[in-house]
Amino acid sequence: MEILRVENVCKTYDTGDTTVNALTDISFSVQKGEFVAIIGASGSGKSTLLHILGGIDRPTSGEVFVDGQSVYERTEDQLAVFRRRQVGLIYQFYNLIPVLNVEENITLPVRLDGRKINKKRLARLLQTLGLTKRRKHLPSQLSGGQQQRVAIGRALMNAPAILLADEPTGNLDTQNTQEIMQLLKASNKTYKQTIILITHDREIALQADRILEIQDGELIRDVVIR
C-alpha cells in the first residue's frame, strides 16, 4: 500500500540576486513499511526534501501525498495537526524540550493533540528504548544516545504514517549509532513503521531496504536493496 507519493516537487530559494534550485522535479513513492535511505553529499538537498515530506517546508511546486491525502492543501494549523499525528521527526541534534523530562518529551505530540496518553504504549516504548529507569530525567541528565532514544520515542508515540530521520546518528559514537539503527530497524520490522532516513554514510544507508540518491537537487538513483 502506498503511504507516500511525491510528484514533481521543486524547491527554489530566492536570495536577492541569486536563485538556488534546492530540489528539481523530484518524484517517487514509498510503500507502507518500507525503510528508505536518502543519501547525498552535503548541500545536495536531502534535508530540504525531508522537511518537505514532513510538512515543515512548502515546495515551490509539485505535490506530496501522505496516505492518499495532499499535504500542502492544508492550512498552517492543519499542517501542525498533520505533523503531530502523521509524521514523526528525528533530528541529528535530538531537539528535545529541555524543561520536559523523558516521559513528557515522548508524550508531547499526544498532549498537543489533547488526547489521553496510552500508558501501556508508553511503558512499552520506554522499555523498548531502554529508558524506563530514566523516565523522570531531564534531557540535561541524559547522554547523547539516550537523548536520541527519547527523540525516537517522541517520533513513534503517535504511530505516525511516516518516520523521518535526519542524520539521526550524526552526533553519536559507533556503539550508539549501532543501537539507534537497531531500534529503527526493529520498529520497522515489528511495527511495520515506514521510515525515511537521511544520511551521508553509505554504511548506514545499506541497512535500509531502498536507497534514493540525490545530487544537486535531483534524484539520480533509486535502488531497492532488499
Binding site: E76, A80, V81, R83, L108
Partner: peptide
C-alpha cells in the same frame, strides 16, 4: 522544534 512536532 515545538512547531515541528505539531504545536500551532
Amino acid at each position: 522544534v515545538l512547531r515541528s512536532v505539531g504545536m500551532t
